[in-house]
């Protein structure tokens, strides 16, 4: 796919339009990545040039949702990085289980695969009934998909392998009903999940949690915005609560780093100690 050449000034113009017209601020996102996503969208939606994309975005507010969907990255899978889920299962859930009521926030949940994975873990630990999972994303179209709990059947092989590697002992296909080319996950998994839009750039804390999961979101932010988001998480996390990030993301060098200890060397899960 031949990428269009878009200049940095053009990206800046577009990002300013978004702030002024729609109140979405992407200026704290990593420049190289957002530029690539915009170039990709020009190609994907067959705009003759960058100018046409910009005009469409300014003049057609219905196109905004499409823009947000394609500019943000929505690549995810169930039990992604199985060893991460194994650590949650073995080291984090037993501690959460001691609470009378468990609140978990999935920030940047995209189409919901990791939230359902968490619900499965909680159910297997017999604590789903006393848990509430708040799953948020900036992208309303991704949340719509998450709301259905329906995924392509073709993905189940990979999800099932991940599940087994994460320490799952049951038959993974018991969790969904297959129909034609789709797999619909059991409604009992979704009962305690609340989905809503939330923008880590502009929205603030809305509850206090024992576990916050935000994986592969911070990599798209520049250092300042990363720090802002981490502070938001810190404000939203109970003392001795857990913060779980993506496999290349880090708390250590941020302004909240001194308040957290990593559970083990391998997994990106931290415990808040003060």
């Amino acid at each position: 796919m031949q990428q269009q050449n878009i200049r940095d000034e053009e990206v800046e113009l577009l990002l300013n339009d978004l702030i002024e017209i729609y109140g979405y601020d992407f200026t704290g996102y990593s420049g190289a990545s957002i530029k690539r996503r915009i170039s990709r969208l020009v190609l994907l939606d067959k705009f003759p040039s960058f100018a046409e994309l910009r005009y469409r975005l300014i003049s057609d507010k219905n196109y905004l949702a499409r823009f947000i969907e394609e500019i943000t990255v929505n690549v995810t899978e169930m039990f992604r990085d199985p060893s991460f889920y194994r650590t949650l299962r073995e080291d984090v859930l037993p501690v959460l289980a001691t609470h009378p009521f468990i609140r978990i926030w999935h920030a940047g949940c995209s189409t919901g695969e990791e939230v359902i994975s968490m619900a499965i873990l909680l159910q297997e630990a017999n604590i789903l009934h006393k848990s509430r999972l708040y799953a948020t994303d900036i992208n309303p179209l991704a949340l719509q998909k998450a709301r259905t709990g329906i995924y392509p059947l073709s993905l189940m092989k990979q999800f099932s392998e991940n599940y087994i590697q994460s320490g799952g002992k049951k038959t993974f296909s018991d969790y969904y009903t297959a129909k034609y080319s789709l797999a619909k996950f059991d409604d009992s998994l979704k009962e305690n999940i609340t989905l809503s839009t939330h923008n880590l750039v502009s929205d603030w804390s809305f509850n206090e949690f024992q576990l916050i999961v935000c994986r592969n979101v911070l990599i798209y932010f520049n250092k300042e915005l990363q720090d802002k988001a981490l502070n938001l998480f810190d404000h939203s996390l109970e003392r001795f609560g857990y913060l779980a990030l993506g496999s290349k993301e880090q708390v250590k060098f941020s302004s909240i780093g001194h308040k957290y200890i990593q559970l083990n060397n391998k997994e990106r899960i931290w415990k808040k100690i003060t």
Binding site: S30, V73, V75
Partner: peptide, 19 residues
């Protein structure tokens, strides 16, 4: 992960679709 290079000479990672 995809590996990108920013204008300030730092790395960015990106887990978007395979290319």
């Amino acid at each position: 992960y995809h590996l990108l290079i920013e204008k300030d000479g730092s790395f960015s990672l990106d887990d978007s679709e395979k290319v």
